[in-house]
Amino acid sequence: MDISSYATIIISTVFINNFILSRFLGLCSFIGVSKQIGPAVSMGAAVTFVTTMASVISWLIYYFILTPFHLEYLRTLSFILVIASFVQFTEIVIQKKAPLLYKVFGIYLPLITVNCAVFGVAVLNTDMFFIGGRAVAGSFIKSLLQGFGAGVGYTLAMFLMAGIRERLEYAEIPQSFKDVPITFIIASLMSMAFLGFSGFKL
């Protein structure tokens, strides 16, 4: 496996298969937390950290525990438990060691446990980098990169959306379309723009 195939994974998860805009993972928080740029980017950073770590941990579990013992059916249960414990653990550590960081990211952490993007990337990794129970070459690095790329793509979409919504405050929108509906419609337009990347041959 060469560098270019790793670069491909990053570019394709950030732009072509952007987690929010083309895979629809992590939409709830995308609609909920994208009102202002500051919180949106903080949330994005927290998600990126968790997706990267979740990819690593879930790969270890899948590779060393689930596939050797043919326990693939426990994938959902074990992944979600590990992600939940990891998030909880991170919250406690940050709170103790870096109270300042906790002030910025802390409130987003509990939200991340049920963020589809985190669990989604763990499942996607096992779907994409294991064929018939066997890991493909470089699957560990690929999972890690996909986890990281997913987070970056999420942050990018959050940042763009928050920037648009901040300005939207001053726009005259029909009463019933305010807030949630208009956000979806804007997301639709953004998604169309991102569809332009899908012609990329990597």
């Binding site: 805009l21 029909p174 379309f177 949630v180 509906p181 208009i182 979806f184 997301a187 639709s188």
Partner: peptide, 19 residues
């Protein structure tokens, strides 16, 4: 059928239902 259509559909539907 593609991603943008999904977002547009739900956005418009919620708007109409709100109305």
């Amino acid at each position: 059928i593609l991603a943008p259509g999904a977002l547009l559909t739900i956005g418009v539907l919620i708007g109409i239902l709100n109305y």
